[in-house]
Amino acid sequence: MNGPTATVERIGRIVLENVEELGRILLLFLSALSWMVRPPLKLHHILKQMEFVGVKSIFVVVLTGTFTGMVMALQGYHGFRMFAAESLVGSTVALGMTRELGPVLTSLMVTARAGSAMAAELGTMRVTEQIDALAVMAVNPVKHLIVPRLIAGVLMVPLLTVVSDFMGILGGYFVGVHILNINSGAFMKNIFKYVTLGDIYNGLAKAACFGLLMSLIGCYKGFNTRGGAEGVGRATTEAVVLASISILVSDYILTAIMF
């Protein structure tokens, strides 16, 4: 077969594979939705996942949020100083955090921490036949394993984003007011003037979507792991890469729709 034909064929195959995978992810999501509304939902499974995704991510989210807010204040200050508009640093940090950096950075950090762990844990359960064992014991694996993780992702990433937003603004305040000597009153006044509740809500809605993507992709990759330890490693890497890309791409689409 000649070069161009082979190349087109290869591209076609890659496109087909990706469309197929997208379809399988969607089917898993629909299956999880249908199991989500069927009682009984085991609350302790959901709480356990919420603790894992949410509570155990607080430290890394606090750290990321704080330093992002601090560096934004620092960068913003140098720009705004040229126009003698240093007091706008506060509102810039707050808008940037609530609309964009809070949701995106939080979900990327949670993907690295919890999305990868979901893929690794479910992948190991798959290759050691623990998922088959669940099915054999008449327990639906989607309901038992995936539903609690999806609920935890959708609920906890927005809550972590609240923490990240708050810490970002606090970090920005510390750098702006205490290090760069911006007037504290002007800093705060501009935040209240320019940041609306809509900015915060839309940011949190984005975070919920990212939380769903993170947990859905982590679960999908883990659930469909093949091939022993190597397969688990591959599933984990693929989950983090695919979830991160999906978060960044969907961020653009959601931002275009919302703001």
Partner: peptide
């Protein structure tokens, strides 16, 4: 009931 090759206990 089923006994799996590596027992498939929940670890």
């Amino acid at each position: 009931g089923m006994l799996f090759q590596e027992a498939a206990l929940f670890d």
